[in-house]
C-alpha cells in the first residue's frame, strides 16, 4: 500500500516535471526512444526477441524474449517489470550466474523506466493489457521477485 502510494506520488511528480521539461513529453514516445537506445540491441528493433527465445541457448541461458503478444512481458505486474528492469534478472535455471537481463537502475531514472514500460504496453493486445491490469490490482502485485 505504502509502496503503491509512493509510486503514485513519484509518477505524478515525474509526470509533472517531464511535461514541463519537454513540451510534447509523451511518455510512450519517450519510452520508444529509450527502448531503441537501450533495449532493442537484445530484444530486437521490433521487440521480436532473439531466435529460439523459448529454449536455453548453447551457454544454458534463456535468450531475450519478445515483448509483443507472443512473449510473456504482459504477464507481469508493473512492479515486477520495474524490478526486472531496474535490478536485472536471470532465469534461476540458467547454467551461468550472470544477469543476462542487465540492471538499468543506475542508467535509467524511475521516470524513464516507467516510460519504457508504458511503451512496452503498446505492444500488447487489448486482452493482454486487461490481463496485466488485473495483475497490478491483485494482492501479490506488490511482492518483489525473489
Amino acid at each position: 500500500m505504502l509502496r503503491a502510494m509512493v509510486f503514485t506520488m513519484a509518477a505524478i511528480m515525474v509526470g509533472g516535471s517531464a511535461a514541463a521539461a519537454e513540451p510534447d513529453g509523451d511518455p510512450i514516445a519517450r519510452g520508444g526512444a529509450i527502448y531503441r537506445e537501450h533495449c532493442a540491441s537484445c530484444h530486437g528493433a521490433e521487440a521480436q526477441g532473439a531466435p529460439n527465445w523459448e529454449e536455453p541457448n548453447a551457454a544454458g541461458e534463456l535468450p531475450p524474449p519478445p515483448h509483443g503478444p507472443e512473449g510473456h512481458t504482459w504477464r507481469h505486474s508493473d512492479d515486477e517489470l520495474r524490478h526486472m528492469i531496474a535490478k536485472g534478472w536471470r532465469d534461476p535455471f540458467n547454467r551461468t550466474q550472470r544477469l543476462t537481463m542487465p540492471a538499468f537502475g543506475a542508467i535509467l531514472s524511475d521516470a524513464e523506466i516507467a516510460a519504457v514500460i508504458a511503451y512496452l504496453k503498446t505492444l500488447w493486445t487489448d486482452e493482454q493489457r486487461a490481463f496485466q491490469a488485473r495483475r497490478n490490482a491483485e494482492k501479490n502485485a506488490g511482492e518483489t521477485p525473489r
Partner: peptide
Amino acid sequence: KGSMQTGWLYAITPDKIRLSMDCFCLWR
C-alpha cells in the same frame, strides 16, 4: 525458490513434464 512470483507449476502433459513460474510466463 527463484520464481518471479510465488512459486512454480509443474504439469504432466501426454509426452513431457513442463514447468513454468507461477506468472505463467514461460513453459519449459
